[in-house]
Each structure stands twice: as C-alpha cells, then as structure tokens.
Amino acid sequence: MASQGTKRSYEQMETDGERQNATEIRASVGKMIGGIGRFYIQMCTELKLSDYEGRLIQNSLTIERMVLSAFDERRNKYLEEHPSAGKDPKKTGGPIYRRVNGKWMRELILYDKEEIRRIWRQANNGDDATAGLTHMMIWHSNLNDATYQRTRALVRTGMDPRMCSLMQGSTLPRRSGAAGAAVKGVGTMVMELVRMIKRGINDRNFWRGENGRKTRIAYERMCNILKGKFQTAAQKAMMDQVRESRNPGNAEFEDLTFLARSALILRGSVAHKSCLPACVYGPAVASGYDFEREGYSLVGIDPFRLLQNSQVYSLIRPNENPAHKSQLVWMACHSAAFEDLRVLSFIKGTKVLPRGKLSTRGVQIASNENMETMESSTLELRSRYWAIRTRSGGNTNQQRASAGQISIQPTFSVQRNLPFDRTTIMAAFNGNTEGRTSDMRTEIIRMMESARPEDVSFQGRGVFELSDEKAASPIVPSFDMSNEGSYFFGDNAEEYDN
C-alpha cells in the first residue's frame, strides 16, 4: 500500500469516517454492505422474486439502478423543472426478469421514488447511507470498465484509444464523492478537466460571474484530485501550473494530454476495490451473516471469500459463452479491467482472455432483445487465490505491452514486471518541450526514458491461498515475461453508450 500519510484510507472515504482504527473501519464497511443486503432482500420480497430470480444479476442491476435514481437529487430536480413526455419524475423502474413456464419473461416495473427511498433508509437504520449508494455506483463503473473500451470518449477529448488503461471510473457520476474520486484513473480526471476547458473556450461566460466562481472551485478541486494521483514531483508541479492558470485554454489542454500520456509509464495511484452486485450481499445477509459484527474490507480476502460461497446467475444470449460472461463479471467484481492478464489468470486459476476474444456482450439486456431465446446460467466467480488490492500504480518500471492497449494499471499487489510499449508511448511525445512547463516536461520525458521494462514492481508481494486469511504465506508467482498482458488488445469491444 502506498503510505497513507495525511490521506484517509478508502474504507474511511467509503464510510465518510473520520480517523478510525482498522477494526472500526471493518465494522463501518460491514455496516454499509449489510445495509445493501437488507435493502436487496426487501426489494425481492416487494417484487415477489423467487430465490433464483433474486440471484439473477440482471435483476440486481435494475434494483441497484432504481435506488441510485431515487437518490439522484440533481436529476430529480431537473426532471421536475423540465417535464418530458412519458417520463414521470417521481417514478423509477426498469426490467425485471421472471421464469414463467420454463421461459424467461421481461416485466417492466415502476415504483415511486419516495417508496424506494423509504425501503433503502429502513434497511440502513434510517440513514441515507450515501456510502452504500456510492458502492453500487463503483460496481456499475467497474462493470462498464470491463465491458467497454471507451474509444470515442478518448478520441473526443484528444487522447489515444490505446490509453484505455487510464480510464478507470470514466462512467462514474460526478456525485460519487471521495470514494469515487479515489477509483478514477488519470485519464478519467484528464477527460473531465478537458471537457471543462473546452467549454470555457467555447463559452465566454463559463468562468464568469457567480456560476463561474463555482465552476472555478470545481476545476481547482479536480486538479488537486489529479495532482494527488501522480507520484513524481515534476508531474505534480505541472498540475500546479494547470490549476493556477488564470484562464484555462489550449496550453492547459496540451499540458493535460501530455500528463495523461506520461501516466502510461509514470503511473498514478488509483484505488481498486472489489464492489459486488447487491444480489451477492442480499443472500449472505439472508443466511444470517452479520457483516457489521464480522467486519468487512473491500481490499482484502473478504470479497473473494464471499464470491467463493455465492451463487449468481445471468441471462445468456443464444451465441454467448457462459464462461466468457463469467470472466467479464469476475473482472468487474475485482475492479480488474486494466490489470495484467498474466496476473489475473494466476489468481483466477483459469486463463483470462483479452476482451476481443470473449464471445459475450454486456450483462444488460436491451429492451428490444428477444426473450424467447434467452437461457440462463451460473456465473463462475470463484478464484484459485486471493491478493491484496493496490492503491498505487506500482513502481515506475515497465515491460512490453500489446498493440491495442499500451500499458496497464495494476489492481493487485503482486510481484511482476509491468508491461508497456515504450516505443509507441515515446513516439507520441513530439519533443515539444517549450513553453512555461518546459523544464517539467524535459524531466518527465527523462524519467520515462530511463524506466526499464525488466524491473520488478511490488517486490516480494504474492497471492494467498483462500485458507490464508491473515495473509501469512505469500506465494510469489513467476510470469512468462514475453507473454501478452493487455485486456483490450487489438480490440473490438462495443462502445459504451450512456
């Protein structure tokens, strides 16, 4: 783990906690998980779902989305002020799938948001429990990260689609708070800032007046979040320049895209947490497990152990491969979309394939898809080993990566060399080191050039047997250095459309 220093740990961010010791953190995270579980059980009762239907990941996603929508204050306010045809701002819903006479049927349900809020609060001892809501947002974000390569979004903001390893959390809503900021990748933060800068260039009043003052505060806050992700002084200094700019424009845009590229080699610290679907927490609570009393951590053995003992089902389209669908969801559960496939294969105990080789589309089923041909199958979400999630980018030494994705962002704290394609990355730096950030740029390029592919990161860190909950005997895996390590390699994943 990167030293926490003055930073709060993510469990504290996750639970809005002030400084807590490890036991208190485990208890408050457990409380959050228990609340999600209780809410899910109650919703299944309301909807009269069978046990099997309640364990269907598509039903879980609909129920999670309903509660997130019920608590989305800004959108609710907007919907009330701008009524649109056929949208009731006070209601929320989605597809629920039921097994009827041996076939899967889709039923569109509609609930009062007020009623959903009441059920959620009741499951969370009367609190709004925003930490639990954020947790579900991060699960949705991790699922998107594993399912889609955001080529269009990258290109629109002047970045290269091969930089997708920097895009963790790119679909997280803005209201996801400190826990959300911690899991956002460098590219995601750059993209958010670039969008602001572009608006400022096109709209003279963007930075002016009372609204402009708020915009400015948001801009500086985002700059500080991004600065905190960088691990070298030169990158941090460049972020200070971007933040202090009187009138952010093209120079800042250039600096930010430069920094994003540099992060492929001088990786930023991005938190990883295993956020599971509500249909995993519900049955665990129903079986009598007391998360608050037992304590829970999002970055240790607990999620692995929970998945070892969970039964989750998914709808499967006619030509999809259930094992591939399982891999997709497994990666999402562990926030591992940008991790090295060699490491993932070792931990999972079966070969993890790149996205383009998977015969599976996303987990969600569109409303126009034919239910007649839908089957369902068990998702295999178990693992051979477990490993500690990392909050750091690993040290800054790398190795060759593949054509589709030119770097990785480690999820697990496991000893290995970190793949990246130096030639491709360095070719993108057209040696432009003039301007006010020239000395920093020169320094950053120097550090990137001296990074050695064969150097090892996370020295001495290994994986653990599932029986080793105290992480007492690390097993340090050895990897084939020459092997392909990137998930979005030469990829044809669908595009994420909101």
Rank of each mutant, 00 (worst) to 15 (best):
E210K: 11
D16M: 04
D88V: 08
R152P: 01
I301N: 10
F429G: 03
S274V: 02
N417I: 13
G187V: 07
G37A: 14
M447V: 09
P173G: 06
K113G: 02
R213F: 07
N492R: 07
E375K: 11
R152G: 09
F488I: 11
K470L: 01
F258R: 01
S326P: 00
E80G: 14
V242S: 01
Y111W: 11
I138L: 15
V67T: 07
R216E: 10
R216W: 08
T424I: 14
L47K: 01
S176A: 13
S269G: 13
E465M: 13
E18I: 14
G102I: 12
S176N: 04
E53A: 14
C44S: 15
G282L: 03
E494I: 04
I408F: 00
S141C: 15
L256M: 12
Q405A: 14
S486V: 01
I57N: 09
K77M: 12
R221V: 05
A129C: 14
F420W: 10
A337E: 10
Q12G: 03
R243F: 05
W330M: 03
V476F: 00
Y10K: 01
A387P: 06
M447C: 15
D127W: 12
S392E: 05
D240P: 03
T188Q: 12
I444L: 14
L466N: 05
R436P: 05
G288C: 04
Q327H: 13
E80Q: 06
C164M: 06
V186I: 15
M196A: 01
R317D: 01
E465R: 05
I265K: 10
A401P: 12
W207L: 08
K103M: 12
D455H: 07
P419H: 14
G228Y: 01
Q327E: 13
I475K: 04
M371I: 15
S50C: 14
N247F: 01
N211M: 07
L328S: 09
G300Q: 02
D128F: 12
Y219R: 00
A472M: 03
S359M: 02
R436T: 09
F258Y: 11
R382E: 08
G86W: 10
R400A: 14
A471Y: 03
G94A: 11
L328W: 06
I197S: 04
E11W: 14
K348S: 01
